[in-house]
Design a protein around this nucleic acid. Structure first.
Length: 528
RNA sequence: GCGCCCGUAGCUCAAUUGGAUAGAGCAACGGACUUCGGAUCCGUAGGUUGUAGGUUCGACUCCUGUCGGGCGCACCA
């Protein structure tokens, strides 16, 4: 809709302009402050310029009215245009708000270490990533979702060691001395139990089996993580193993050295990341020849760029922000355009329940387990709240809010609006096919506004995706639901003269609610 | 100490990325047809956008300082 409007205006004015939605719908459906910028060039008052512009659109069929106010030019769409658009959307729900474009994107998110279950901090990045993925696909991007498995470092050894020691203590019942660093939490004991059943208790006999326990435990944890994600409706296209890439280190390392941005000092190899905004240079190869953690990310990003996407998006926890500069520097040194990588940071989350801090899971070693919260409030509610706030704000919320069955619970409120639409159709005894060709005309202001708002979904999706701010979509859905409830309260539908028109209007609202919810991973409820 | 993020109604958050009178929900108070589902709706009240300057036709938004909170400052991952 917006695209069509922009094109129409551009054809007439032949210059770029800002098109926005007026704060107050009574001004019109779209507005532009272009007269203010022209005022300077033309040395005329913005008001006069705005009036001149209006005249150019007097007989344009897509506008009902174009008027000027205080220098703004306001556009009101014609009913014909809105009606035609709604008819199309209702008949082609699966195509509504879809688009095609020629850009490939690699979207990486979650990528939690396979050393334990997912905790609540992971969930925010997970649902943001999954929703951007769904929206991006819908908008026609060639977008790929990917999870990077850190399965090559010391932490995997520690996982194996922890299982080994837990097995000795709890199964072989021998005394063990725990090191400073190991994975705590009862899940380790459960893993030891399972290992003993699957591999035999002999695996705990001596340290030679730690490696076996490491890789066995890692596989178990990947399974667990996948199942945690599935509970939130999330599936990845790709899982990329750090370990499997490791034999490519030589290639990446040679590329780095060619850049002239590496040097050897104190027997270690460094990259000059401070040349590109990092706080200091970083070691990539230690004195003993082992590569550092950063090397893993260098190989991985080398691998990503070799796959030649137009754009790369990483979603990281905010506690990793210090890492951005060095990874981007490394990408640059590898000879790639590091500006093609954008990092979205997901800020910390603090959960409350009944006003108290949410209970930590002993099982997980004093983290809030993601699966606990999903079981508690449900996937839909969790997704909705995490998507309702900008990713870079510190989020705090009380899960009890999602047990309320009233308007204080946004996901309930939206579902109720959707269910209401079905209810009205059921009462009327009419089907969508019967009313889709009714012409929407002579609408009241409220009806016209509701129709217009329902048709905004495509541009809301664009805006959400381009700014990586999914809360624009959740805000929109709340707003659309509110308008529907309001309209419903003020207008009877069934048995009234406007019945068929309003049914069509409701059908359109239903389309936008369903499609919008599905793109944040929520299935709209047919009845409550 | 340095760097990044955040600071908007009592609370949780929005604000078309520099545009019109800063908006919702919750909490408080007052209302609505014996209901196409009152699981909803309407109204009242609530603000010097942390603070002090600056940039311009216009600033919650950009710049500088400052205060408060979070996170990070590995040859760990």
């Amino acid at each position: 809709m917006k695209k069509r409007v922009i094109k129409t205006i551009f054809d007439e004015l032949q210059r770029d302009f800002v098109l926005e939605k007026p704060k107050d719908l009574s001004f019109g459906h779209y507005a532009t402050p272009i007269a203010f910028s022209l005022a300077k060039e033309l040395k005329q008052s913005p008001m006069l310029i705005a009036e001149e512009i209006c005249k150019k659109f007097e007989n344009n069929p897509i506008f009902k009215e174009v008027s000027s106010l205080k220098g703004y030019v306001n556009f009101r769409l014609s009913e014909d245009f809105l009606n035609e658009y709604a008819t199309y959307a209702i008949k082609n729900e699966n195509e509504f708000a879809k688009d095609t474009r020629d850009e490939s994107i690699l979207l990486e998110y979650v990528s939690a270490n396979p050393t334990g279950p997912l905790h609540i901090g992971h969930a925010r990045g997970a649902v943001i990533g999954d929703s951007l993925y769904r929206i991006g696909k819908h908008l026609g991007y060639d977008i790929t979702s990917e999870y990077y498995i850190n399965d090559a470092g010391n932490q995997i050894y520690l996982l194996g060691l922890s299982i080994y020691l837990a097995g000795r203590e709890n199964i072989l019942h021998v005394e063990v001395t725990w090191p400073d660093e190991f994975y705590r939490g009862e899940y380790i004991v459960d893993l030891a139990q399972e290992a003993s059943e699957e591999l035999g208790s002999d695996v705990f006999k001596d340290e030679s089996n730690i490696e076996l326990l490491s890789s066995w435990g890692k596989e178990k944890m990947i399974e667990l993580i996948k199942s945690n994600l599935a509970d939130l409706g999330i599936e990845f296209e790709n899982f990329v193993s750090e370990k499997s890439l490791y034999d490519k280190w030589e290639d990446s390392f040679i590329k780095l050295q060619k850049s002239d941005k590496t040097y050897v000092k104190d027997g270690k190899t460094w990259i000059r990341s401070s040349d590109l905004g990092d706080e200091k240079d970083r070691v990539v190869v230690r004195e003993d020849g082992r590569a550092t953690y950063l090397a893993g990310d260098i190989i991985y990003h080398d691998n990503k760029y070799q796959r030649n996407f137009d754009r790369y998006i990483n979603i990281w926890g905010a506690d990793h922000h210090g890492y951005i500069a060095r990874v981007k520097a490394a990408i640059n040194f590898l000879g790639y355009d590091e500006t093609k990588l954008e990092v979205i940071l997901a800020q910390m989350v603090s959960l409350l329940k009944g006003g108290e801090p949410y209970k930590m899971s002993k099982r997980a070693g004093n983290f809030i387990l993601m699966s606990d919260v999903v079981n508690d409030v449900g996937s839909d509610a969790l997704r909705f709240v995490f998507l309702s706030k900008k990713s870079d704000t510190h989020l705090e919320f009380d899960v009890d809010m999602f047990k309320q069955e009233d308007s204080s619970n946004p996901i309930f409120y939206i579902n109720y609006a959707h269910a209401r639409i079905n209810q009205v159709f059921a009462k009327s005894g009419k089907t969508i096919d019967e009313i889709v060709h009714v012409k929407l005309e002579n609408l009241s202001e409220e009806a016209a506004n509701l129709l217009y708002t329902a048709l905004l979904l495509p541009e809301v999706l664009e805006d959400s995706f381009h700014s990586y701010q999914v809360q624009k979509l959740t805000e929109y859905l709340k707003n659309l639901a509110a308008l529907l409830h309001k309209f419903y309260n003020e207008n009877r539908v069934v048995g009234e003269v406007n019945e068929e028109k309003y049914l069509k209007l409701f059908a359109m609202v239903g389309v936008s609610l369903r499609v919008g919810l599905s793109l944040i991973g929520i299935k709209a409820k047919e009845k409550m």
